[in-house]
């Protein structure tokens, strides 16, 4: 087990390093960062001075190393736009994105798992078809459009829910549904397939044969085994969701990290964009690492492979 964890950890660190190099090189893909910082009216002398001041005249690998070692200590440099430390900006906004992510994945799990279970118990029933319909819709609907339509119906027409902002929990209802709906289809299909698989197995027949009640068979014997892959899928989806919250945050004007990313891209605030790409990637890397370790712990067969 320890061997597996160390191997998996090594991979995670290597992936993280590669992603950091890619997001660092974004700064140089954008052209001369000194010229961008100096502004339109700057003379060549000004640009040269800024290049020295920020250290852009040194070799890239040196700059990368410096950036990385600072980033590891939580210092992502200063935002070009706010003139504030990027790390503070992100920390301030991250709580909203995290709240949204946790709400979204909870919503997805709370709706998709029961639907998947019922769909598996009664295949081809009305509920099974409804679940399939929901998942097909979820995969085809553009998230920004779904969000806007919810605003039209629930905020403008019915006046039930506020269209934007983060003041109370009511403000999070629509963003949660929009974000969570995108994780639903995959979770539901996996729950359904897992339950169908388990319900046909020998130990379920044995449990029924020894006279266990149907509820006990379903929840104690079947669901506990079918849910294992769902847990790891949920962790991966959570990572995707945090990265994908940029669209949802921009529709509902939630001033979280995704919204900050969108604004910063528009303002050419590259240190902030770099840091955000790295932060979102880190979430994904940490979540997938945890889910792999959890899976290996629950299922010994994975450790050996």
């Amino acid at each position: 087990m320890l061997n597996f964890i160390l191997k998996r950890l090594g991979l995670a660190v290597l992936v993280a390093l590669t992603v950091s190099a890619i997001s660092f090189s974004l700064l140089f893909m954008a052209g001369d960062p000194a010229a961008a910082l100096a502004g339109e009216q700057a003379t060549d002398v000004d640009i040269e001075a800024i290049r020295r001041l920020y250290g852009f005249d040194r070799p890239m690998i040196v700059q990368y190393w410096e950036w990385l070692s600072r980033a590891l200590q939580g210092d992502f440099g200063e935002s070009y736009y706010f003139r504030l430390p990027v790390a503070d900006l992100i920390m301030e906004r991250l709580s909203i994105t995290m709240t949204l992510g946790v709400c979204g994945i909870s919503f997805a799990l709370l709706t998709a798992v029961p639907l998947g279970v019922v769909a598996a118990i009664r295949p081809n029933s009305l509920i099974d078809r409804f679940a399939l319909f929901l998942s097909v819709m979820g995969q085809a609907m553009p998230s920004f459009w779904f969000g806007l339509m919810m605003i039209v119906v629930f905020s403008i027409q019915l006046n039930w829910l506020p269209p934007s902002g983060t003041k109370t929990w009511v403000h999070f209802i629509m963003p949660t549904i929009v974000l969570g709906y995108y994780a639903m289809p995959a979770i539901m299909r996996l729950t359904r397939a897992g339950m169908l698989d388990v319900l046909g197995s020998d130990y379920i027949r044995t449990a029924r044969a020894k006279g266990a009640g149907e509820g006990r068979v379903l929840f104690k014997h079947a669901l506990r085994n079918a849910i294992i892959p769902v847990v790891s899928l949920a962790a991966v989806q959570m990572g995707f969701m945090l990265g994908g919250s940029i669209v949802v945050e921009s529709i509902f004007a939630l001033h979280g990290a995704g919204y900050l990313a969108w604004e910063s891209i528009g303002r050419n605030d590259l240190p902030t964009v770099q840091a955000l790409i790295l932060v979102f990637s880190m979430f994904y890397i940490v979540f997938t690492f945890l889910s792999d370790v959890l899976n290996a712990w629950l299922d010994p067969r994975i450790r050996v492979a």
Binding site: A16, I22, A30, G244, N268, V273
Partner: peptide, 22 residues
């Protein structure tokens, strides 16, 4: 496999937005 892992770790929408902006 390593490259696939790196690619999956990067948030698609954010990276695409940043590159298009550049």
């Amino acid at each position: 496999t390593f490259l696939i892992n790196v690619r999956l770790a990067m948030p698609v929408v954010l990276v695409a937005l940043a590159i298009v902006a550049v």
